[in-house]
Design a protein around this nucleic acid. Structure first.
Length: 214
DNA sequence: GCGACAG
DNA sequence: ATCTTGTCGC
């Protein structure tokens, strides 16, 4: 991997961000996640109905993996597999939900943003842990949240308590959606675990795939 | 030089 | 992410 070139691409994404849109008549969402083991990538995509909070369809894919994880370059490891599985799926969804940051990234080019940019469609990122930004610790109540800012005071997203007595998750717009709509959407598909229901489902699928493979 | 660093 | 036991809170 040429990380210099990758960084340049992230800067290109940053300079072409679209943080507007996200009309709220969404019907379906696509959640994607990947597990890794023995140089293999176990990929899952879930079509989730936002209105009824139901999983409509599940897709899986297993591919060889040679790409290593390097901090701030997660998208370059995961996007190739996500694109492969996305190309197998009928485009009957309005937005993509990723297990990773959106613009809450040193170059505003986290996984969700990177993917939304390439597919030219709305996306939102939800990460389980911190990457960058300044914020006050949110309260322990369900849906309690605090803004996350960069060093110059620009809003990056939110630290959201999505489950009581648990570390917050980090919500940020990916592409073609506003901050407010991003947060609203995540609350809508919150579910009962730390990560939003669609991601939780996708994660379980990838781990089952992984464990049934060896 | 030092520390931080999604999955 | 993966590896892995006990343990705390609802």
């Amino acid at each position: 991997m040429n990380w210099q070139k990758c960084r340049e691409f992230q800067k290109k994404i940053r300079d072409n961000l679209v943080l507007k849109g996200g009309d709220f008549d969404y019907r379906n969402l696509l959640a994607v996640d990947i597990s890794f083991k023995n140089n293999k990538a176990f990929v899952a995509a879930v079509i989730y109905n936002i209105k009824s909070n139901c999983v409509e369809k599940k897709y899986t894919l297993i591919k060889k993996n040679k790409i290593k994880y390097v901090p701030t370059f997660l998208a370059f490891r995961e996007v190739p597999y996500i694109l492969r599985i996305v190309n197998k799926i009928q485009r009957n969804y309005d937005i993509i939900l990723c297990d990773g940051h959106g613009i809450m990234h040193p170059y505003r080019a986290g996984l969700a943003t990177h993917l939304g940019y390439l597919l030219n469609m709305p996306s939102v990122g939800v990460a389980k842990s911190y990457l960058c930004g300044n914020f006050d610790k949110p309260g322990s109540d369900y849906f309690s949240h605090e803004n996350v800012y960069d060093d110059t005071g620009n809003l990056l997203g939110y630290a959201l308590t999505n489950r009581k007595n648990t570390k917050p998750v980090f919500v940020s717009p990916g592409y073609k959606i506003s901050f407010e709509k991003s947060l609203k959407l995540i609350k809508l598909v919150s579910g009962k675990y730390k990560v939003p229901e669609p991601i939780h489902v996708a994660d379980k699928i990838t781990k089952k795939l992984r464990d049934n493979n060896d």
